[in-house]
């Protein structure tokens, strides 16, 4: 095993870089992504397809907003909260943004500790990430409740253009679903790390294959993507 790894690293170093590297990688009549495992490549390709889904949502939102003759509700006022008798604009959304960014930070560190084989720290950081994610979903539930009580519906709302409700519920709902799935995914992998499955080479319950610490990086890719989508939703839906 160790020799294989050493040979892999030597091959990595021998590979050409830049545009010649692309031509060599893609024309080698073998796999195109040389030093990337199939699991990681497949996660990236899944994320690429997910990018198109969210792009379509945001583009349909843009089209609805640009083509309506009724004024669009001002998100700054719609998402404001009363704190201490004062109207603070968009504060809940800002806190949600910081929570999700923090979860990305802990996830990035979990991946790093995973490759170092530090099981306790990896599992703890993954649980912290899941906790941040659950907090985010909770705050989103609070936000939805508040808006629904104020009369926002997918077909109408008291603030302006009716399309506001449908785009809001669809975009944030789909993103919240992604976060929820991510939390479940994190908890499953954190449990495996904690139990030492990747050291004892225990077979997975679903695939019956032996896992390794790379799954943490793959989980991380998904999680960072959820954060990435929020960056775009925050900028284009809440701030615009």
């Amino acid at each position: 095993m160790a020799e294989t790894a050493a040979r892999d690293v030597a091959e990595d170093l021998a590979r050409r870089s830049g545009w010649q590297g692309i031509a060599a990688d893609w024309s080698s009549d073998q796999r195109a992504f040389k030093n990337v495992s199939w699991g990681k490549a497949m996660m990236w390709i899944f994320l690429l397809s997910d990018t198109f889904i969210f792009s379509c949502f945001l583009l349909s939102y843009m089209t609805a907003r640009m083509s309506t003759t009724v004024p669009w509700p001002n998100p700054s006022e719609v998402f404001a909260l009363h704190i201490g008798g004062e109207q603070v604009p968009l504060i809940l959304i800002a806190i949600m943004t910081f929570v999700l960014i923090s979860s990305s930070g802990t996830m990035a560190m979990a991946v790093n500790f995973g490759y170092r084989g530090d099981r306790a720290k990896t599992a703890a950081l993954m649980l912290a990430t899941a906790a941040f994610g659950a907090t985010f979903v909770g705050m989103q539930a609070f936000e939805w409740t508040k808006l629904i009580l104020e009369g926002v519906r997918p077909w109408a709302n008291p603030f302006g253009a009716p399309q506001f409700g449908s785009t809001f519920f669809m975009i944030t709902g789909f993103h919240g679903t992604h976060v929820t799935i991510g939390v479940v995914f994190l908890l499953i992998i954190a449990r495996k790390v904690w139990r030492g499955d990747f050291d004892t080479k225990r077979r997975g319950f679903f695939t019956s294959r032996k896992g390794n610490y790379e799954i943490i990086e793959i989980t991380g890719l998904y999680w960072h993507f959820v954060d990435l989508v929020w960056v775009f939703i925050f900028a284009l839906f809440y701030l615009w």
Binding site: R15, S17, G21, I22, A32, F33, K34, A41, W44
Partner: peptide
């Protein structure tokens, strides 16, 4: 990552 993966993932969007 290698340029092959970067291009495959970042150019289509």
């Amino acid at each position: 990552e290698r340029l092959a993966l970067i291009c495959a993932i970042l150019l289509p969007p």
